[in-house]
Nucleic acid binder design. Structure first.
Length: 560
RNA sequence: UGCCCCCUCGUCCAAUGGCUAGGACCCCGGUCUUUGGAUCCGGUAAUGGUGGUUCGAAUCCACCGGGGGCAACCA
């Protein structure tokens, strides 16, 4: 069980201090501000856990705010996906807001800025604006329109809003400093013209705020106390503070940046995710190889595992990568304590028990949980003369440390009998197609009355009772840990793992699972954790492998 | 090349000028075992470098080195 040691990180320390000093004079308020233009992923999960977790821990509030300021890319289907995924993770927001509901207030602030000479309408085109911004080493130069009168700016701005101008003809810019060392502060654009229907506001607006203009002010409008974001927004903090101050907010929110989550062997950029989906490298946004929340869910990972993972990873200011092993540990650790064990043979090899009575079937009682998992329950597993065992559990010429079946060797069938391999049957090509074994009737349940030790235990299913099923065995989508860090010019699709999905047909699963609902999780003993997929049909079961079991035999084998 | 951020075991995170630099993951060894799972026990392994401040520095300062962010009318 998990020991509830309180989480400690620089953000929690800061919030704790603010709460202790009653800095804001009211409970804290955080927010999760996604743009509804893509599916949330494991990186968002970290941010969600942080923002929602903080609010809960410190008795505050958390807002879900859709940062929907770009009419070209956003869609209602993404807001639905985001809400669904947050809830799946186990969180509920105290209030739901949309930046697009603040367009009026933002416009009023724009007017105020113009009146006070803090903003102006620039009529340069996009290229000119870019060119005149200068570079990181050279200062920018003021636009010819920078010193327009307040009256002219007001007139232009109202006509921009009224829809008199075409896209790109004018923008509203903050009047700060074209030579500012922080590029963000070189008269950032506040409002742009876009004659595009907004998924929520329809055609009501044809001027849209940019991120910097909308974000901090939305925080301030909502009374956010702690605005947490990722490191790449560090430079934006300066304009955030400038705007909130100029707008006259009394107790402005404070932005704090933390390192985003980067998981080895994964990509989460929206552009890349979109390409994987649209180019058919994966089956969709919920492909279990993707670390979208939807993919993770379909893969069989639990929300509890994701939350534990987020907690284990921690929160810091250091840009960092996390090993996949840390993720897999969280997944196994959670599943181990909650899912039933069942028997499934991935790659079947026929075993005939020559001394077992023909036509006879006996139900063996098999526990769903091992002794160290505090859950109880069992089911009968039919045992008969012909069985399937795992092909990998037999070797004709085994190395010394191989504890499984081999000619003349004895193993234990899980929950069943001890059997000994007497004869190996091969086809004309020399492939092993059947094992003829004898069982020891005195060992029902797996123990020998004479006390002889049998090292190996293997899983099995009765051939006559097993259900055929499809197994989808997932591996990493990429062959390298950092598909984002490829040499210049090398596309990330060049490191796609051709074996990221191996589909196994004709696996044999015990009959007890046949009627279980879609989404049931299991441990297939000695093989891994699986979940029944939505593609399952009665008589045509499909299981996704969530994660393998740790396997010390593969390590042993690798040593030679 | 300007500004900003960052640098502690292989990886992630602690140590808030003061005890032997701690925990987790991975790895290695052992225990146990009707899952080569789990559990339990033990082990390996780090303050980027050089100076400085100080009784005392992972922590403060300077410089060097390394990593990252910023020049969308994206967020």
């Amino acid at each position: 069980m998990s020991t509830e040691t309180p989480k400690r990180d620089f953000i929690r320390d800061m919030v704790a201090a603010d709460v202790a000093s009653n800095k804001f004079g009211r409970p804290i308020c955080t927010r999760f501000p996604p743009e509804p233009n893509g599916f949330p992923h494991i990186g968002h999960a970290k941010s969600i856990c942080l923002n929602f977790g903080l609010a809960k821990e410190f008795g505050g509030r958390v807002h879900l705010r859709f940062d929907d300021t770009n009419p070209f890319t956003e869609d209602i289907k993404y807001v639905e996906a985001i809400k669904r995924d947050i809830r799946w993770l186990g969180f509920e927001w105290d209030a739901e807001y949309y930046a697009s509901d603040y367009f009026e207030q933002l416009y009023a602030i724009a007017l105020k800025l113009v009146e006070r000479g803090k903003a102006y309408v620039d009529s340069e085109n996009e290229d000119e604006v870019r060119e005149h911004r200068g570079t990181v080493t050279t200062p920018g130069t003021p636009s010819a329109y920078r010193d327009r009168s307040v009256a002219e700016n007001l007139d232009l701005l109202s006509r921009m809003k009224a829809g008199e101008f075409a896209d790109g003809t004018h923008v509203l810019r903050a009047k700060i400093d074209l030579a500012h060392p922080n590029m963000i502060m070189r008269d950032p654009i506040l409002l742009r013209i876009a004659h595009a229907p907004h998924y929520r506001r329809g055609d009501a607006w044809c001027i849209y705020p940019l991120y910097d203009f909308a974000h901090g002010l939305s925080d301030a409008i909502e009374g956010i106390t702690h605005s947490l974001c990722t490191l790449e927004f560090k430079d934006n903090r300066e304009i955030y503070d400038w705007l909130v101050r100029e707008a006259g907010f009394e107790r402005p929110p404070e932005q704090t940046e933390f390192a985003r989550l980067v998981l080895d062997y994964t990509v989460v950029s929206k552009r890349k995710l979109l390409r994987l989906v649209t180019d058919g490298h994966v089956a969709g946004w919920d492909d279990p190889r993707l670390h979208t929340i939807a993919g993770i869910r379909r893969r069989g990972v639990t929300p509890e595992a994701i939350r534990a993972f987020a907690e284990n990873v921690g929160v810091a200011r250091k840009p960092a990568r996390t090993e996949l092993a840390a993720y897999e540990h969280a997944v196994r650790n959670d599943l181990n304590m909650r899912v039933p064990r069942v028997l499934c043979v991935v790659n079947p090899l026929k075993v005939v028990l020559t001394n077992y009575p023909e036509g006879s079937v006996e139900p063996l009682d098999a526990s769903y949980y091992p002794h160290d998992v505090p859950l109880t329950g069992s089911r009968p597993v039919p045992f008969s003369r012909e069985l399937w065992i795992e092909r990998d559990d037999f070797m004709e010429d085994p190395p010394k440390k191989f504890f499984r079946l081999a000619p003349g060797r004895e193993v234990r069938l899980r929950y069943g009998y001890l059997i000994t391999c007497q004869e190996v049957v091969k086809n004309s090509a020399g492939d092993v197609i059947e094992l003829r074994c004898t069982y020891d009737p005195a060992t029902r349940g797996g123990n020998a009355p004479d006390g002889r030790k049998v090292q190996g235990t293997i899983h099995w299913v009765s051939a006559a009772h097993a259900a055929d099923c499809e197994l989808r065995l997932y591996d990493t989508l990429f062959t390298v840990p950092d598909p984002d860090g490829l040499p210049e010019g090398q596309d990330f699709t060049s490191v796609l793992n051709p074996d990221s999905l191996v589909v196994v047909h004709g696996a044999k699963v015990e009959p007890s699972v046949a009627a279980d609902p879609i989404g049931t999780r299991y441990q297939f003993e000695r093989t891994g954790y699986f979940i029944s997929d939505e593609d399952s049909r009665p008589g045509a079961l499909v299981f996704n492998r969530t994660v393998t079991l740790r396997d010390s035999w593969v390590k042993e084998k690798a040593k030679g």
